[in-house]
Amino acid sequence: MIELRDLTAGYGGGDVLQGVDLAVERGSITCVVGPNGAGKSTVLRVISGLLRPRLGEVTLAGASIAGRSTPDIIRAGIVQVPQAGGLFGDLTVHENMLVGGHVLRRDRKRVKRRIAELAEAFPILGERAGDKAGDLSGGQRRIVEFARALITEPQVVLLDEPTLGLDPRASAVVFETTKMVQSLGATVLMVEQNVRFGLKLADHGVVMERGRVILADTAEALLARPDMSALFFGSTPQAGEAAEGREEARKSTAAGSLA
């Protein structure tokens, strides 16, 4: 569905992504994991058009979308759900939905129809329609953000750290909502720090490190790996010294990109 080939991108002087290759299967949930600073969120920023790649290709169902503007990419069928804090807290829930249909603003009927359809799937949209989004609980906010992204009937939904700062109940809501998004027909590409959460939710897992993909497998296979915690936890005593060298390499890359 989405394919990245040799993607290179960054901010200012450094390249955060150094040749990322990644393919996302239609209808699947794919989760990108990896340590801080590996470039996970940057991958999403490039796909959603917030950041122009320096090199490489991004294709959606075979058509190139690299370097196009965010509204164009939304129209093409990819929507990103931002990290916590991307909800418009001063707007009502209903208004958030309307803004979600920004690129469809000439087609009011369609927006209206979509909001009605989504309210069936996510009852809270109807129940709290007139309330300020900022007054909702953490999990409820996430539902609104997910629903907001679905207004444009995207083929692909990008999730950036969907459980960041959420309590367990809200995380469970995110889990179910993501499954729901998938069942509504969308392909999901997500970035998640909470590795087990992400891999239990996903069909496929991708491990990134230092701006590259170092491992891609089914989520189940990744979860079953004995060196799982070493991969994501940094060097725990259990992981032992083997992980140390890798850890230090990572730190030095991070220093290089920050210096």
Binding site: P71, Q80, D90, L91
Partner: peptide, 13 residues
């Protein structure tokens, strides 16, 4: 006014 990042991601210029 609330979230420029969020606004950019729904396609607002």
């Amino acid at each position: 006014a609330t979230s420029r990042n969020g606004a950019a991601l729904v396609g607002i210029d």
